[in-house]
Design a protein around this nucleic acid. Structure first.
Lengths: 242, 242
DNA sequence: GTTTCGTTTTAACAAATTTTAACAGAAATG
DNA sequence: CATTTCTGTTAAAATTTGTTAAAACGAAAC
C-alpha cells in the first residue's frame, strides 16, 4: 500500500486555512493534518484570518474568497503586503475566476474552484510548497526584513544598504524592488509580479520606470562583484549572489 | 530466464507506477519488485500519481494513458515540468499512439501498447534506466544548476560559462538550451523536446531560431576540442565530451 | 502660497537579446 | 545524380532592456 514516507515538504509545515463554512473547514483541517501531515490553523472569517496571520508564522494560506467581514482577495492582498512570497491558494466559484484572476496570478498563487475534490487541493499544496522549499532559505531572510547580499546588508524597513562602514539610503520604491529580488534570490522575479506588487499595474510605462530602478539598484550593488542583477529576457530578473 | 545479475541499474531504484486497474497494477508492482528488484510505488489514478511524484523521488515512471481523473499524458506533462529528464513509459492502446505521440516522443520516453507482455515492460525499463545511468553524474551536476563541460564550467543560474579564469556571459535562451544539452550529456536531445521546453511550441520558425543558438553555443565552446555539439540528423543534438 | 528637496516618471537614445531572412552545405530519397 | 529536406552560419530586423538626463510630482520648510 505504497507506505507513507513523510516527504521533505511535510516537515511540520504550517497552513493557514480561512473558511467560513464550519463543516467544510473542519473537514479540510482534518484531512490535511492526517493525509498531508501539515499543521493546520483554521480561521472562520477574513478578520480572524488576518489576526492569525499577523500573530503566527505560516508556510501557505488557503483562503475562501466568499466570506463575511472580509473577502479572500482583500485578505490575500493584506497578506501579500506582509509576505510577498508565501503561496496562497484561493478557493473560489468558477465564475469568479475570470475577473480578478488576472491581477492575482502573481507570486506562487493558485486557484481552486469550488466545489473541488480534496485530493486535488492536497496536490496543489504539495506542488506549491515544493516549489517554495527549493528556494534556498538563508537564515537572514527569516525576518523578511534584513537581507544579506554578498558583502552588503540590506535593511528593508530602515531603507538602508550597508557595506563595511558605509551606509547608503535608498528610496521606498528602490527598497521594495530590492526586497522582492532578495526574497527570490537566485530565482526569477517576474516583471509582472514586481510591477503588480509595487505599482499595482503592469503597463508599459511602469515597466520602463522599473527599468530605471533596476539600473539604480545595480549602481548601489556594483562594489561587490559577487552580486549581480541579471535579466532573464522576456521574463524578469534574478538577483545572483555567488 | 537469462540469469539474474542485478544490474547497476537496479540498485534500489524507484519506479512510480500509475495504473487504474487494480489487478494489473498489483501484478505489475509485484513482478517488477520481484524480478526487477525495483522499489515500485503504485498509484491508482493520475491525481494520486501526481501527488506521489511531488512527494517522493523516482527514477522512472510508468503511466497508463487512459485513467480517470487525470490521463497519463497530462500527468506526463506535469512530471516533465518538475523533472525534464526522468524517463517515462506510457502504456497505451494501439490506436492512441498515432495522435498524441508526436508531441510526446520527447525525453527518454517510451511507449508500450496494451496488452503487453510483462517481460517486455521489464526489458524496456532496464533499457531506459541503463541509458540514464550511463549519463555520467558528476557531483556538480547533482544540483541541475552547475555543469562541467570538458574544460568549461557552466553555471545555469548565473548564466556564465567559465574556462580557466575567463568568464563568458550567456543569454537566457543560450543558457536554457545548454542546460538541456548538459542534462542529456552524450545522449540525444530531441529538437522537439528542446523547442517545447524552451519555446513552448515546436514550429518551423522556432526551430530555425534554435539553430542560431546552437551555432552560438558551438562558438562559446570551441576552445576545448574535447567538447562538441553534434547533430543527429532528423532527431536532434548531442553534447559530446570526450 | 511659494520654495526646496528628494523621489518618481517620462523621454531619448544606446545596447543586448531574440527572431527572421538569406544563402550555403549535408544528408536522405528515389 | 537530381531533388528534396534538413542543418549551419551570417547578417538584418524586431523586440526588449540599460542608462542617462530632464520633467513632473509631492511632502516638508519657509
Amino acid at each position: 500500500m505504497s507506505g507513507e514516507p513523510i516527504s521533505a515538504a511535510a516537515k511540520g509545515q504550517r497552513i493557514l486555512l480561512v473558511e467560513d463554512d464550519p463543516n467544510l473547514g473542519i473537514l479540510l483541517q482534518d484531512y490535511l493534518q492526517l493525509k498531508g501531515k501539515y499543521e493546520v490553523v483554521l480561521a472562520r472569517d477574513g478578520e480572524e484570518g488576518a489576526r492569525q496571520f499577523s500573530r503566527e508564522k505560516f508556510d501557505l494560506c488557503i483562503l475562501d474568497v466568499m466570506m463575511p467581514k472580509k473577502d479572500g482577495f482583500t485578505l490575500g492582498r493584506e497578506i501579500r503586503k506582509i509576505n510577498p512570497v508565501i503561496p496562497i491558494i484561493f478557493a473560489t466559484a468558477k465564475t469568479m475566476i475570470e475577473d480578478k484572476s488576472e491581477a492575482f496570478t502573481l507570486g506562487g498563487d493558485d486557484y481552486i474552484t469550488k466545489p473541488f475534490r480534496i485530493e486535488e487541493l492536497l496536490l496543489r499544496i504539495n506542488a506549491l510548497l515544493k516549489r517554495v522549499n527549493k528556494q534556498e532559505k538563508t537564515p537572514e531572510t527569516e525576518t523578511l526584513d534584513k537581507f544579506e547580499i554578498g558583502d552588503y546588508l540590506f535593511d528593508y524597513t530602515a531603507q538602508l544598504i550597508k557595506k563595511d562602514d558605509l551606509q547608503q539610503k535608498v528610496s521606498t520604491k528602490e527598497a521594495e524592488l530590492l526586497r522582492l529580488l532578495c526574497l527570490k534570490k537566485n530565482n526569477v522575479l517576474t516583471r509582472e509580479e514586481a510591477l503588480i506588487s509595487i505599482w499595482n499595474d503592469d503597463n508599459y510605462f511602469n515597466g520602463r520606470s522599473m527599468d530605471v530602478f533596476l539600473s539604480k539598484l545595480r549602481k548601489y550593488l556594483r562594489d561587490d562583484p559577487k552580486v549581480e542583477i541579471i535579466n532573464v529576457h522576456g521574463k524578469g530578473y534574478k538577483l545572483i549572489v555567488n
